[in-house]
Design a protein around this nucleic acid. Structure first.
Lengths: 208, 208
DNA sequence: TAGATTGTTAATCGATTAACAATC
DNA sequence: TAGATTGTTAATCGATTAACAATC
């Protein structure tokens, strides 16, 4: 165990750091301090330093962090330096839209299969993939070593899809359906539901 | 000030409770205990009771919560009992997909305008809306009393769009672009970025 | 050297959970 | 009445921030 005990909050912030560091890298900025990062990401510099320090000593006192080096380190930590295949279940508007995210994430992470139940859609090409029937899910997950599933089916079908993904061996699920899912504790579930986000935002909107 | 100090974590859970309660309501289930809710939502019952108790005494000792009543109460708390207009900026695949979310959220919350800069798209109908040029944003926000903006433009344009939304008077922003935005402290910003979600999930995926 | 900035410890703050009296 | 379940206080746990010695 190379890391002691990393909190979920820390892990959720690492991709945010990574994204901004990659931007700096593209701008050929070599070095950055936790203070500068804090300014740009609206975060406390101490938190950034502490987060990074869980994984090693990446900075230099008096200087800051070397951008390119830190990018590589964070990629390693997040395991973005190895291939990771994702399955997308639900080829509706949202599913199709998300299938474009291939480019955004990382060359090493890619959507390796898309599933639906609609006979009209099956066999159709989306990007460089062909929409498959969901009954091929288990086989595809095994053959392509898919580890993460994204669920973009209507709410009533989402739990069933989650069950199948789990059964097939997926270890992470990103659920876009507006419903609470139950999965075994060894499977990491994230909700990416627009409904709940908007509804909780509404709380903060004062009367006009 | 009718509420003392409600934490963000509590507010984010209320829509989750609401959603499940509405499901129970549709199934004509009259009453539910915090224990049952906890089971179905994979949450601690004490937390659910405590969350609800911040806003009033909605339950009955020995009985539980009356589903229909609690649904109404949570809607009131989240201000989902009044109209709330949302603007969508960016009519790409994701934007179009999200424009369907009208039905999911709430009859009272609706996307009231869609903007883009692409001349090809402007004037095009999406659902019951016509895509407008982003230069009409300020006027539309004012006229339609839009209070929340969803950003689905490419990352490099997102901060500019956020600035315009803020300037126009929007008080909540849901950002789908893979970039960290800065907004004034009185504007509530939420990130709904798939990239960071997937990347943080990757951390938990063990070697195959 | 003087100034800057890290890594880390200690202090603080916030959120979750346990426990139980009140009561339906 | 006995059993169930809330609302709430106290205890615990986890996360953030402040402070500063180490050092580039």
């Amino acid at each position: 165990m190379k890391t002691p005990k990393i909190s979920k909050a820390v892990v959720r912030r690492l991709p945010v750091y990574l994204r901004y560091l990659q931007l700096l890298d593209e701008m050929n900025i070599r070095t950055v301090s936790s203070y500068e990062l804090g300014q740009k990401l609206d975060m406390n510099p101490a938190q950034i330093r502490k987060d990074l320090a869980y994984f090693g000593e990446f900075g230099r006192k008096g200087i800051g962090y070397e951008v390119g080096y830190l990018v590589e380190k964070i990629k390693q930590i997040l395991k973005l330096d190895r291939h990771l295949n994702v399955a997308l279940v639900g080829a509706g508007h949202l599913g199709i839209a998300l299938s474009n995210y291939n480019r955004y994430t990382n060359e090493k992470m890619s959507i390796a299969a898309i599933f639906d139940t609609d006979r009209e859609k099956i066999g159709t090409q989306v990007g460089n993939l062909i929409i498959q029937h969901i009954d091929e899910l288990e086989q595809a997950v095994r053959e392509k070593e898919i580890r993460i599933g994204m669920i973009t089916v209507p709410a009533p079908y989402a739990q069933g899809v989650a069950d199948r993904l789990v059964e097939a061996g997926v270890k992470g699920i990103l659920n876009f359906a507006p419903v609470s899912l139950l999965v075994p504790s060894d499977v990491h579930l994230r909700s990416a539901d627009v409904t709940t986000e908007l509804q909780s935002l509404a709380y903060y909107i004062e009367e006009s």
